[in-house]
């Protein structure tokens, strides 16, 4: 599948690396197809790009770059339905990263992480209730197991 990007032109992306949203990201409800672009130079982030709008792309990362304790995400019945979650499925959880235009402060949205069902590539932005996580958690300086190690097979660039 071909993905148009503004800076990098057309990328050929393996179909199995696509991520599908049955209910788009909040504010981007019409965009249902995204891909991970994992470049060495992006790490510890992964570029998460819309396959339908070349102006929409996010930096995403493992939540533990922004979370000093445990990170608990509970899925509602609705979340599970939209992920078509079945017994034995594996899920990946990642957060959207914001880089401030001025000052370059890096924060992660722990209040609204993205959950991906790795079996069927269905994803959903969920809302974490009952915890004090914010949409702007500052990045921690420590290093953790990076997201791309969990997603090494998630993309191909031709």
């Amino acid at each position: 599948m071909k993905v148009e990007t503004r800076e990098w032109g057309t990328l050929e992306v393996a179909d199995e690396s696509m991520v599908h949203f049955q209910e788009g990201l909040l504010g981007f409800e019409d965009l249902r197809k995204f891909v991970f672009i994992d470049e060495e130079a992006f790490r510890p982030f992964v570029w998460f790009v819309s396959a339908e709008d070349r102006d929409v792309g996010f930096a995403v990362a493992d939540p533990f770059y922004f979370c000093s304790g445990s990170y608990n995400v509970s899925l509602s019945a609705g979340d599970e339905a939209l992920l078509d979650l079945e017994e034995g499925d594996s899920i990946a959880i990642f957060v959207i990263v914001t880089v401030e235009d001025t000052g370059g402060r890096i924060t992660g949205n722990l209040k609204g992480p993205i959950v991906l069902n790795t079996r069927n590539r269905l994803a959903k932005q969920v809302v974490v209730y009952g915890a004090s996580y914010s949409v702007k958690e500052p990045m921690l300086s420590r290093r953790v197991v990076p997201l791309h190690s969990a997603m090494a097979s998630a993309w191909a660039k031709g």
Binding site: E7, L25, G27, F28, F42, G57, N109
Partner: peptide, 25 residues
Amino acid sequence: IYQKILEENRRASGISPSTLKEVAA
């Protein structure tokens, strides 16, 4: 909460690969 996440998504949405590389560096 809906509004906060929506606004944060918008703020985060336009990052270019060159910016991402600079930040990662």
